[in-house]
């Protein structure tokens, strides 16, 4: 098998960095997330490839928080779209966990299927190579196995690396992966290493059947109870690897400006507020319900898989202690009222 020795990792990254921007899990001061290798500061920052995962997902690499779409110019009654900003520069997501990759696959469904291909997403996405870091040691908030993710054989990866102690076992899966592998072929060695043994999940989550049951629970009283402590703060949507909702806005200076899209959150009142002032989800509980139904039911109905990938970040980040695993449990246990 091919392996990349951990001692050679940084040199390999430097090499990759010449042809593409490489995003890796790292800790910078108090934050942890996927940052560009260019921003890595020796001695201060810490690579987190061997940690379970990082706090902020690699979502921004495929869907930047703010993305310019096109520039606008006004001349009297004339309006022009001067330039569009599809960005196809090569990027590598290195060491993403299977849950985060599944989230990207979910976004692929949204942005690339059902009649329309989003050109901004498509250009960016096609230029991204994904190196997955297979998971053998689930953390206490992990439940990807329950959400249709295979932690040791992740779908959607161009390359899969497996932590074998001194080195990563390197498995190329796609032509895109081949191209990347060939760039750093000089650092790969042929060696036989024992693969890690997959450890059992700490939480036992039974998602199966939840979507079907939820179909009957839209009007159930359970939502008021489940969402009562929710502040509708939106952290869950921002740290979520798969929450993709966006807003389109404009910025103008006099006669020039640009339109951009930016992340939005279904937790905000303004999200679904209509021009006339009406809002079908004006109440915080209604927004809470929509989010969990989207994650656990609606997405599954539309695209065949849940939009939650079991990464556990929202469980960790929620300032009110709302726990999606508990919500799944309570839904499963709830008695249906006719």
């Amino acid at each position: 098998m091919k392996v990349l020795s951990k001692a050679k990792l940084e040199t390999a990254l430097n090499k990759l960095n010449q042809g593409a921007e490489v995003f890796l899990p790292m800790q910078k001061a108090q934050e942890s997330g996927f940052y560009s290798w260019k921003l890595f500061q020796q001695g201060q920052d810490e690579l987190m490839l061997d940690a379970l995962n990082v706090y902020l997902p690699p979502k921004h690499v495929v869907l930047p928080q703010t993305e310019r779409m096109y520039s606008i110019k006004l001349e009297g009654q004339d309006m022009k779209i001067e330039q569009t900003f599809e960005d196809a520069s090569p990027r590598v997501i290195f060491g993403a966990r299977p849950c985060d990759i599944k989230a990207i696959l979910c976004m692929d469904e949204v942005f690339l299927t059902r009649g329309y291909e989003d050109s901004f997403y498509k250009c960016r996405r096609e230029a991204i190579t994904i190196v997955a870091n297979a998971c053998y040691q689930p953390g206490p908030a992990c439940f990807c196995n329950a959400m249709e993710v295979n932690p040791v054989e992740p779908a959607g990866a161009d390359i899969i690396i497996r932590d074998a102690g001194e080195a990563y076992v390197w498995e190329t899966k796609t032509p895109k992966g081949e191209a990347l592998t060939s760039q750093i072929a000089e650092f790969l060695e042929e060696k036989s290493l024992a693969l890690p043994v997959a450890q059992p999940f700490i939480q036992d989550v039974k998602y199966e059947g939840t979507a079907e049951k939820l179909k009957k629970m839209f009007a159930d009283h359970i939502w008021a109870k489940l969402g009562e402590a929710c502040h509708n703060c939106g952290i869950c949507t921002y740290v979520c690897p798969s929450c993709y909702c966006f807003d389109i806005q404009v910025k103008m200076w006099g006669d020039e400006g640009y339109r951009f899209r930016c992340w939005d959150s279904c937790m905000y009142e303004e999200y679904s507020r209509e021009a006339g002032g009406g809002n079908p989800r004006g109440d915080g509980i209604e927004r809470f319900r929509n989010r969990f139904l989207h994650k656990l039911e609606f997405f599954k109905e539309r695209y065949g898989t849940p939009l939650c990938t079991g990464c556990g970040r929202c469980i960790v980040a929620c300032p009110a202690g709302i726990n999606i695993v508990k919500i799944i449990d309570e839904i499963k246990e709830a008695e249906l009222h006719a």
């Binding site: 949204v110 059902r114 009649g115 329309y116 909702c245 679904s272 209509e274 609606f298 997405f299 109905e301």
Partner: peptide, 24 residues
């Protein structure tokens, strides 16, 4: 039906009723 819309092509998320998007 109508709801607030941003993208018009079933991507941006906000005009859903259940798993259907009004715009699409």
């Amino acid at each position: 039906l109508e709801m607030r819309m941003k993208c018009g092509i079933g991507k941006c998320g906000r005009c859903n009723i259940g798993s259907e998007y009004i715009c699409l």
